[in-house]
């Protein structure tokens, strides 16, 4: 089990155990833990299309939303995205696969503040920052040739939860991250002049808490 997934489950469990009481009074802190799973369409489309044949990555993770005043909340989440492909050479737009396995892992850590509308169906929106840890490993790499880096940028978060019971909610979670990181300097991303390690993520969100 990946670290973000384990963290998400831990948060959900903690929320369920620690905060079982009703909390509909305004001004009371309310905590909702959640698990998200879905897909991210990466902004560096040409680069990821070249190495992986697709710029879509599965993402999985979890987080917690803490309502701090009326319906204002702070949301913290950590996710994990993985892209498997191979090293390539690009000449005049043609991509040549080199059959050298390559693995990219991105771990966004999102912090956002926003507003949630009350009701059985409760839409929400938030803005914040996302810090993405980026790692790229490939076969035959010498020490120092793999990439471990990170970048921080804008996060926009919208979604809606549907309440099914006192504690359980299911909804859709959309995130847009605009984060410049290690791309665009060398590698195929430089060829395509793509710098962002962000993208647009759409996930199913299962929450527990209030």
């Amino acid at each position: 089990m990946s670290r973000p997934t384990a963290l998400a489950i831990a948060i959900c469990t903690l929320v369920a155990l620690v905060l079982p009481q009703p909390a509909d009074a305004q001004g009371t802190l309310r905590l909702r833990g959640y698990f998200v799973g879905g897909s991210t369409w990466l902004t560096a489309t040409d680069s990821f299309d070249a190495v992986a044949g697709s710029h879509r990555a599965s993402s999985i993770g979890g987080g917690a939303a803490l309502t701090i005043w009326k319906d204002a909340f702070v949301d913290v989440a950590v996710l994990r995205m993985k892209v498997d492909g191979q090293r390539v050479f690009v000449d005049q737009g043609t991509v040549f696969d080199l059959n050298i396995p390559l693995h990219v892992t991105m771990i966004p850590f999102d912090v956002a503040g926003g507003w949630r509308m009350a009701g059985r169906v409760s839409p929400y929106g938030a803005v914040g920052v996302s810090r993405i840890s980026y790692s790229e490993r490939s076969d035959f790499a010498a020490p120092g040739e793999d990439v471990n880096s990170s970048g921080t940028g804008l996060l926009v978060l919208v979604g809606a939860d549907v309440t099914f019971s006192r504690l359980w909610h299911v909804g859709a979670d959309l995130r847009y991250r605009s984060v410049e990181g290690p791309l665009g300097q060398t590698g195929v991303s430089a060829f395509f002049d793509e710098r962002s390690i962000g993208g647009f993520a759409a996930s199913v969100r299962v929450s527990v808490g209030h």
């Binding site: 990821f48 190495v51 080199l98 390559l102 990439v147 791309l183 991303s189």
Partner: peptide
């Protein structure tokens, strides 16, 4: 030359 390019390097 044989190793080619990754996304970032």
């Amino acid at each position: 030359t044989l190793r080619g390019l990754g996304v970032a390097r």
